[in-house]
Design a protein around this nucleic acid. Structure first.
Lengths: 224, 224
DNA sequence: AAATGAATTATTATCGATATTATTGAGCTT
DNA sequence: AAGCTCAATAATATCGATAATAATTCATTT
C-alpha cells in the first residue's frame, strides 16, 4: 500500500528501494511494460541486488510489477481493457464497502469521513505556480476515498480497495491532468458526503460510482 | 495463488522454495504466528538465503506471511476475529463474482462449471485408508469454487477470491476434518449448480453464502 | 526484588562474486 | 529469404561471507 514517506531514511535499504520504485511506477517514470533490470536499478539506487529483488517481489503483491520465473521483473502493463476491468472492479468493491460502512451506523466513521472531506477541500488540486497536481491534494484525496470504506469492518476489503486505488493513480498520471479539468470534482465529493450524512445509501453509492465512471470515460478516451 | 505442483523440479529454487513454504503454511506445518527464521529455513531447504527471502516476500502478497522491517518474517496469525472477517469478505466478493458470472450469460462458463462439478463429485473427500482429506478432492473443490467466479469478467476480483480461498484452507486444516463430517457438503454443491443452471441468481447466491456460513459456524466453534 | 545498562549472542539485511539460464546474432542450410 | 544451430553475450538467480540490527543475558545499582 501507500508507503510511508516519513521514515524513508532510517528504514532498511529494501524498504527505501521499495518506496522509490513504487513511486517511480505510480508516477510513470518507469514505463508500463518496461523491463526492470536488476543491474540497472542497482546502479540507480546504489545498492546490491538483494534489496532490489526483494523490493520487486514485494511490489508484485500490489500488481504493479510482474515476475516471470527465470526472466525477471517488468512493470505491469496498462491497456484500455485492463483499465475497464480495474474501474469495474473498483465500483463493485467500493459499493460493497460503502454500503457496509453506512450500515454499521458508526459515529466515529462518519466523523472521520467529515474530517477527511474538510481536509481535502482545503487543498487546491493544481498548484498555481507549477501547474502540476498538488501532492497534498493527492494524499488527501486518497484519504477521503479510503475513509469512505474504512467503516466496512473488513481490513481485507479495505486493503483490496487500496490496491486498486494505487493502480488507478497510474492511469490518472499517464493521462495527465486532463481527466479532471472540465469537471467539478469538488462538487462530486460534496455530494457523496451529503448523501452519506443523509444516510441515503443508494444515492451515496450512485454518486460514488458515477464519480468513478466520469473519470473513467475521460481516461478511456486518452488510452484511445 | 495455488502453486503448480507439476513443474516444481525444473523451476527456479525461489519458486520451489515458495511452493514448499506455501504448502507448509496451508497445511499448518508452520504454525500461525511462528517466526520464519532464515537460517532455519535455509537448512531445511538446503539453499542460500536469497531464495528464502524472496519466496517469503512473495508470500507476503498472499497475506500468508507478514514482514516486519528489520525483524524478519512470521506466519500470519489466525484468530476467531480474523476468521469472521475472512468469511464475511469472501461472501461479499463471491456473491458479486457469481452474480456477474451469471449475468454474463456465458455458455462456456456454464459448461466449465458443470465439468468442474462433475470432477468434484468423482472424488471422495476422505480417503478410506488414511482417514485424511483426499488431496485430489481439495484440488477439485477449489476448481469448482473458482469456476463459479471465473465468468465475472474481472481477473482482479478472481485473484482476490483466490487469495481468500487459500487463507480459508488454513482455517479448515487447523480445525481438522470435523467441520464437514456431519454435513452433506456434496448436496450443497449440487444445489449451487442447480440454481446456476436454472439461472436463478438469488437462490444460487443464497445457497453459496449459506454453504460458507455453515462451514464458518463449525470453524468458529473450533477456534473457541 | 525491580530496574538499568553494558556485553554477548542471535538474527536479519546486505554485498560482491559466481553459476545458471535466457537472448542475440552470425554463419550455415534448404 | 526464411528457418535452424551454435557460439557469444547479457541477464537472472543463487551462494557464501560480512555488516547492521535486534534480542538476550547478567552483573550492577537503587
Amino acid at each position: 500500500m501507500m508507503p510511508n514517506q516519513l521514515d524513508s531514511d532510517n528504514s532498511s535499504i529494501t524498504n527505501q528501494t521499495y518506496q522509490r520504485i513504487y513511486s517511480m511506477i505510480i508516477q510513470g517514470e518507469l514505463k508500463p511494460g518496461s523491463k526492470l533490470k536488476i543491474e540497472e536499478l542497482r546502479k540507480i539506487m546504489g545498492t546490491g541486488a538483494s534489496p532490489i529483488r526483494e523490493a520487486l517481489s514485494l511490489l508484485t503483491s500490489e500488481q504493479l510489477v510482474n515476475r516471470i520465473d527465470q526472466r525477471g521483473f517488468r512493470v505491469s502493463h496498462v491497456s484500455a481493457e485492463s483499465f475497464a476491468e480495474l474501474l469495474k472492479t473498483r465500483c463493485w468493491l467500493e459499493e460493497r464497502a460503502l454500503r457496509e460502512s453506512m450500515a454499521s451506523q458508526d459515529m466515529q466513521w462518519e466523523e472521520r469521513l467529515l474530517l477527511a472531506h474538510h481536509r481535502l477541500k482545503r487543498e487546491a488540486r493544481i498548484l498555481e505556480e507549477t501547474g502540476l497536481i498538488n501532492p497534498n491534494w493527492e494524499l488527501r484525496h486518497k484519504e477521503f476515498h479510503t475513509s469512505l470504506m474504512s467503516g466496512c469492518g473488513s481490513s481485507l476489503l479495505i486493503k483490496f480497495c487500496d490496491q486498486l486505488y494505487d493502480q488507478n493513480i497510474r492511469y490518472r498520471n499517464a493521462a495527465g491532468s486532463i481527466s479532471y479539468s472540465s469537471r467539478d470534482v469538488g462538487g462530486e465529493h460534496d455530494l457523496i458526503l451529503k448523501h452519506v450524512l443523509d444516510r441515503n445509501a443508494d444515492k451515496a453509492v450512485a454518486e460514488l460510482v458515477s464519480h468513478y465512471k466520469k473519470t473513467g470515460e475521460f481516461l478511456a478516451l486518452q488510452l484511445k
